[in-house]
Design a protein around this nucleic acid. Structure first.
Length: 959
RNA sequence: GCGCGGUUAGCUCAGUGGUAGAGCAUUACCUUGACACGGUAGGGGUCACAGGUUCGAACCCUGUAUCGCGCACCA
């Protein structure tokens, strides 16, 4: 290959290899493959979205898993795609419309508006996909899916119809979480409770039947007084029992005649007499709890707030038209004017906020579609009994708790962008065959309708009729006029016919919650409901990687959908788990610990980081700082670390390249130096560490192990020691060392590949490691090279890799460190070569002598005889492998060196004392495991030896 | 209120009972023939606090403090 440049330049490398992988179809999953399957579905990012640090973390982990699985010989499917993200996308397009054309979506109309959304999607929808590619994501792009794809939409529709027919989906008029800004209902999960500072207002009302008797009511929402239809007290509250059944005079709207302002005092157990004044105003149309009270007592409902959060006409002259918060202030003023206000004290309470629009939710009565969750029990059980594993497992408890307490899911949204609810209705006149009747369109439009497929529902109370309610000539004989409701997974063509003037059906105008489509993601993306090759091969998926913030929104619902729709016998899946493992990432925060957000502007643009440092650097840095289960404090320094590391890897390969010689020559056991054996043993340990880390999904451990092995073991010691060989003249030894280096590097690059795919691929080819490999096992790409295995017994025996070599070489390196320390204490500049004298404890090999010389930056290393005595005052080091003397060449600070040795001796003293005390304790010596006892004894000997060495060095300085 | 997580070096974090670790920052020296995105050697920690268990606790137990998160909430 061409000579490597001095510094690694990712921009010259990354796009090139990504294009290569794509062209060679490296990411494409083959369902016909005989290899075992490994699959992941991507958590689909919003189609409107931009890549943020959360995506980086999440997708890097998925890519690591996918690439590792390929190297493990699996057939890998990582299935990508995007989510249509109902509200977010609609809001974005509406904003643009407002900005560019000063129009609202209503100005355009539904059809035209949706055209705009699709245009927007076509234009911007692939931004985030391209960003994922920049990151190196090895997704099978040939299978990219979008939740609004026609196929996918049919899945959503089919699912709705099935659940409807099972009676799990129903329509009802309920209190829902209403977002006045987005003007749609939201599910409970989309409501965020926030502490809010406000006031608790106490106001008094007169009991109508007992003039002069007043009740004081506490409320935080005086603006809803016009909607009050009762006040409630606890029937057991002695202060108020005698008043139940009487009435009070509601103070607002002020202008109403007194008789229209009378509302009853009722008794209800819900009222807590400790709280407030023990008197509760009941606003059934604007509060969930009040609605329940209202139902129990058959209270009238008075709606006083419009959908947009402004007050309606029923609130009277003072409040009408005002925004609800402005109205609150005015209501307080009015109460004050009436001398009804008793006090207003500062008060903090929790208020539900719309997660999307960040405004307080308005509980509102409206007609919505709800889903009774299916397959709840098996979904709970599979996690509880450990068949599906959560990492970290504490999320299992959170999941279980949620599933134990779930309420029906409000799935309809008053939006335009999304899957429209597949329900059509038209009014059926009583006893008149004037409208379209079931058998009519069965005949007329030649569709294969049968009456059993038609769900006929009377909206008023939800009673389901059967087709028998019609006479044979299509007459409605049910005795009353009702809505004829069709729910079916009709094709677009069929729907058009239904909506034609001839039939006059109108489709429900609402769309479904986005999550009602994404909960089908693991199988709807694989061709369901057909029993496709892909489904057969890759479903259930292996791993899911996602954030814990969507554990309820998405993970739990996917599990339920998996059981409900994939548990069927035709799929031959006894266990319908949609995935086997769920990895929950941490949340990425900024340096101050704040969640990354657009509004705070504290989220760095990952693409800028990639441009500046490279995708590998971003990946490696992010993974190193993201321990399992912990939030991540993001710091650009981490990415810098990643870049530095890549550069180190690059230059280590460059060093190898500069030595020339044959690539991947044969390693001769007889020629192995102890340094060779040491680094081979370290490589084996690193492989084992990586396997352990992968098994536990501990990617930060894996990157830390790689970092340590490559930088601190390979580069710092082995490469430096190898210079002793390369600067020498023994060609056989040089060739053998090159072979060892190539062995280490070719293994290391493979270990690195899942984490830093680009640079590892570049070097894999650049170093020539791909040349002798089979095409499908590394010849074409490192992606399919085999993942390194720990050394087996034969290998270890053949190369003589006994564990004792670690100790032997460690002693040598420790000696070097201490020798360098001697230089430093002697104020020898780093670039100055020094003459050392070495008195070895045992006959040293020429290789070891040469290694010591080079690592100590010695001009010479004179081996002296056992009876050699240096001049008094010569700085001396004693270690396990012998003694080192540094004959004085200049002034050395004897006092400082003595102080240092003194301090060292004190440290040794205290360590020795600690161990001695332990060993002197019979409780210790009798109870402790033999290995630990042995450790302590050895440690004592070591410390004592070190102390002796230090004392000797100190002695040598004296005089 | 219930549940979960954190508290270890200046900062960000590892560390599941037996010698307190990493990266960054910092100090000193060094551009030597892979790399200054670098090298070498240092300095720096009563492991939040208090009890308990144990021969031995950063680690296990109990409690406290504090920060963060989730769920549920009383107007």
């Amino acid at each position: 290959m061409a000579e490597l440049s001095k510094a690694y330049e990712p921009q010259l490398v990354e796009d090139k290899w990504y294009d290569f992988w794509l062209k060679q179809n490296c990411f494409t999953a083959n369902p016909k493959s005989a290899k075992p399957a490994y699959s992941i579905v991507i958590p689909p990012p919003n189609v409107t979205g931009m890549l943020h640090m959360g995506h980086v973390l999440n997708n890097t982990i998925q890519d690591i898993l996918a690439r590792k699985a390929r190297m493990d010989g699996k057939e890998v499917l990582w299935l990508p795609g995007t989510d249509h993200a109902g509200i977010a996308t609609q809001v974005m397009v509406e904003k643009q419309l407002k900005k560019e054309e000063k129009k609202t979506r209503h100005d355009l109309g539904r059809e035209e508006f949706l055209k705009r959304v699709w245009l927007w999607k076509e234009k911007h929808g692939d931004i985030i996909i391209n960003q994922l590619k920049k990151l190196g994501s090895s997704c099978d792009w040939t299978r990219e899916r979008f939740t609004m794809d026609p196929d996918y939409s049919r899945c959503v529709q089919k699912v709705f119809v099935e659940l409807y027919k099972k009676g799990l989906i129903y329509r009802g008029k309920r209190m829902v979480n209403w977002c006045p800004v987005s003007q749609t209902a939201l599910s409970d999960e989309e409501v965020e409770m926030k502490a809010q500072k406000g006031f608790m207002y106490h106001f008094k009302v007169e009991v109508a039947e007992l003039p002069g008797t007043w009740l004081t009511i506490a409320t935080t929402r005086p603006e809803t007084i016009p909607g009050d239809t009762a006040v409630a007290v606890n029937p057991k509250d002695p202060r108020y029992t005698h008043l139940i059944g009487k009435h009070i005079v509601r103070p607002l709207p002020a202008e109403l005649p007194r008789e229209q302002k009378l509302i009853p005092i009722i008794g209800d157990e819900h009222v807590d007499f400790e709280f407030g004044t023990g008197v509760l105003k009941v606003t059934p149309a604007h509060d969930k709890a009040d609605f329940d009270i209202g139902t129990r007592h058959k209270l009238p409902l008075i709606e006083v707030i419009h959908a947009d959060g402004s007050m309606n006409d029923l609130t009277g002259a003072d409040l009408r038209g005002l925004d609800r918060f402005k109205a609150r202030k005015v209501a307080v003023e009015k109460l004050t004017e009436q001398e009804a206000l008793v006090e207003a004290k500062p008060y903090e309470n929790n208020v539900g906020y719309s997660q999307r629009a960040d405004v307080p939710i308005e509980p509102r009565l409206s007609e919505q579609w709800f889903l009774k969750y299916p397959a709840v029990e098996p979904s709970k059980a599979c996690v509880a009994d450990g068949r599906m594993k959560f990492h970290p497992d504490r999320w299992a408890k959170v999941y279980d708790h949620w599933l134990t307490n779930i309420q029906d899911w409000c799935i309809s949204r008053q939006l335009w962008w999304g899957h429209r609810i597949p329900v059509w209705s038209c009014v059926q006149k009583k006893n008149l065959p004037n409208g379209p009747q079931p058998h009519h369109f069965a005949n007329l439009i030649n569709l294969d309708f049968s009456l059993d497929d038609l769900m006929v529902v009377r909206i008023s109370d939800g009673v389901v009729f059967s087709g028998k309610e019609f006479s044979t000539n299509g007459e409605n004989i049910s005795g009353e006029e009702f809505n004829f409701v069709l729910c079916g997974d009709y094709s677009e063509e069929e729907a058009k016919l239904l909506e034609s003037d001839h039939f006059g059906f109108k489709r429900d105008s609402d769309v479904l919650d986005t999550w009602f489509s994404s909960w089908l993601w693991p199988f709807a993306t694989m061709g369901w409901p057909e029993q496709t090759e892909t489904l057969k091969k890759f479903y259930p998926t292996t791993d899911l990687v996602t954030g814990p913030d969507i554990i309820f929104f998405w993970v739990a619902r996917m599990i339920m959908a998996g059981y409900e729709f994939m548990g069927e016998p035709q799929f031959g899946l006894p266990d319908a788990l949609p995935f086997q493992n769920v990895y929950f990432t941490g949340i990425i925060r900024d340096k101050q610990g704040r969640k990354m957000s657009k509004t705070l502007g504290n989220s760095p643009d990952p693409i800028e980081l990639i441009t500046k440092y490279g995708a590998d650097a971003l990946r490696f840095g992010t993974m190193r700082g993201a321990p399992l289960g912990q939030d991540v404090m993001f710091d650009e320094k981490d990415v810098e670390l990643g870049r530095n590391f890549c550069n180190k890897l690059w230059n280590a390969c460059r060093f190898r390249q500069m030595q020339g010689g044959e690539v991947q020559g044969e390693i001769h056991p007889a020629l192995l130096t102890n340094d060779d054996k040491w680094i081979l043993l370290k490589l084996d340990a690193a492989i084992r560490e990586l396997d352990t880390a992968f098994a536990a999904y501990k990617f930060s451990d894996a990157t830390a192990a790689l970092y340590r092995f490559f930088w601190n073991e390979y580069c710092d010691w082995y490469v430096e020691a190898s210079k002793a060989v390369f600067y020498g003249t023994d060609d056989a030894l040089k060739a053998n060392t090159l072979a060892v280096i190539d062995f280490i590097l070719s293994h290391t690059l493979r270990l690195f590949h899942p984490f830093i795919p680009f640079i590892s691929e570049e070097l894999w080819h650049g170093m020539g490691f791909s040349t002798d490999m089979p095409e499908d096992q590394g010849g074409q790409t490192i992606m399919y090279a085999h993942w390194p295995k720990p050394f087996d017994a034969d290998f270890t025996a053949h190369y003589g890799l006994e564990a004792c070599w670690l100790d032997i070489v460690n002693a040598k390196y420790e000696f070097v460190t201490q020798g360098r320390n001697l230089r430093r204490e002697g104020n020898i500049p780093a670039n100055k070569k020094v003459k050392f004298q070495f008195k070895p404890a045992a006959e040293p090999t020429p290789h070891d002598q040469e290694v010591l010389k080079i690592l100590l930056n010695a001009e010479s290393l004179e081996v002296v005889a056992a009876d050699f005595q240096p001049r008094k005052g010569t700085p001396t080091l004693r270690g396990a492998i012998g003694e080192l003397f540094m004959p004085l060449e200049g002034l050395i600070d004897v006092a400082a060196e003595k102080a240092r040795l003194q301090k060292e001796i004190e440290k040794f003293d205290s360590e020795i004392l600690k161990v001695e005390q332990k060993l002197a304790n019979p409780n210790f010596t009798t109870k402790v495991p033999a290995a630990v006892l042995e450790d302590h004894r050895n440690r004592l000997i070591e410390w004592q030896a070190k102390r002796e060495h230090a004392r000797a060095a100190l002695n040598a300085l004296e005089g």
